[in-house]
């Protein structure tokens, strides 16, 4: 019984972290699906979202506003606005001028952008870890105190629900809305979409903005869940999220969700039953194995070699 509860506890831990990976992974998967490049700076956009949310929360606290829903909504809005603008600007400055060149070039530009943004925040906000207030505390308990009390905190539930809402909204948006249809058209064939009168530049910008907005949501949620932010934490989170995107099949939105959850659970099970030191080894090995045996990921479409 105790072992079972322990297992479920680790499963919940894994699903929580996995769903935020999924939120970040959307940014990678949409961008890759449309212009076929890895947006290395996406992890930094997420980090900036977390910082903005923290700045907004601290600012409201200084003003003496403490009504929780208001604080959360203001923080969310600020984070989304700043991150989306950042996503837009990054695309405009670093990726649009190099689009269509040799595929190494946008990638290197992206790595440069990632280093730049890390240091931008580092210079502006310092390198210290800054505590993030735990706005949502408490949770449910299962099991008695003398065996193993399993707990689900409210923040974990908030993370699940928010992720689900975001994913559903995004899927609807992509399948129903005009821009969503245009997105799909552009990802099918950029040149053709252009000929058909779709403003592809605008669609690509929109992709970056949507991805960045979701990353900002993840930034706020994870900031509250973990408890601190620092300028370097975006990079590794971005790497994990990218792994999740590839795992699920890059370019596929349900794939990003699935990949994120699998990766999160794999990590927490590794920490739970083996050792936390090998968490990253397991996630990267998982990535390599998937790519070797199913190079297009779990839900990806096979790539056709165009001659």
């Amino acid at each position: 019984m105790q072992d079972l509860l322990y297992f479920f506890q680790q499963l919940i831990n894994g699903l929580t972290i996995g769903s935020t990976y999924a939120l970040i992974a959307i940014g990678y998967t949409m961008v890759y699906g449309i212009i076929g490049m890895i947006n290395f700076a996406h992890g930094e956009v997420y980090m900036i979202g977390a910082y903005t949310a923290l700045i907004a929360i601290t600012g409201l606290a200084t003003l003496g506003i403490a009504w929780l829903p208001l604080v959360l909504i203001v923080a969310l809005i600020c984070a989304v606005i700043v991150s989306s603008s950042m996503g837009w600007a990054v695309e405009r400055v670093a990726y649009r001028p190099v689009r269509g060149r040799h595929r190494l070039i946008p990638l290197i530009s992206a790595i440069g952008m990632s280093i730049f943004l890390q240091n931008y925040v580092h210079l502006a906000q310092g390198s210290r870890n800054i505590g993030f207030p735990a706005l949502i505390e408490g949770g449910f308990q299962f099991g008695s105190e003398d065996t193993f009390p399993m707990s689900i905190s409210y923040i974990q539930i908030t993370i699940f629900i928010t992720t689900l809402i975001c994913m559903t909204a995004l899927s609807l948006f992509i399948s129903r809305s005009r821009i969503g249809r245009a997105c799909r058209a552009v990802s099918q064939d950029l040149g053709m979409a252009n000929l058909l009168g779709i403003d592809t530049n605008r669609i690509i910008s929109a992709t970056f903005v949507i991805g960045a907005a979701l990353a900002a949501v993840a930034g706020l949620l994870l900031g509250m869940y973990y408890g601190s932010v620092d300028p370097l934490f975006g990079f590794i989170a971005g790497l994990k999220a990218f792994t999740a995107a590839v795992l699920g099949g890059i370019g596929s939105i349900p794939g990003a969700m699935l990949g994120g959850l699998i990766l999160g659970v794999a990590e927490s099970m590794t920490s739970g039953y083996l050792s936390g030191e090998y968490k990253d080894v397991v996630s990267f090995s998982l990535l390599i194995l998937i790519l070797l045996f199913k190079p297009t990921g779990l839900l990806g479409k096979p790539e056709v070699e165009k001659i």
């Binding site: 322990y6 680790q10 929580t16 934490f233 590794i236 936390g276 030191e277 968490k279």
Partner: peptide, 15 residues
């Protein structure tokens, strides 16, 4: 047990 410096998620460790 060791953890990774710079990591933020310790929920598994805490469990």
């Amino acid at each position: 047990e060791g953890i990774t410096a710079g990591d933020k998620d310790f929920s598994s460790l805490v469990t």
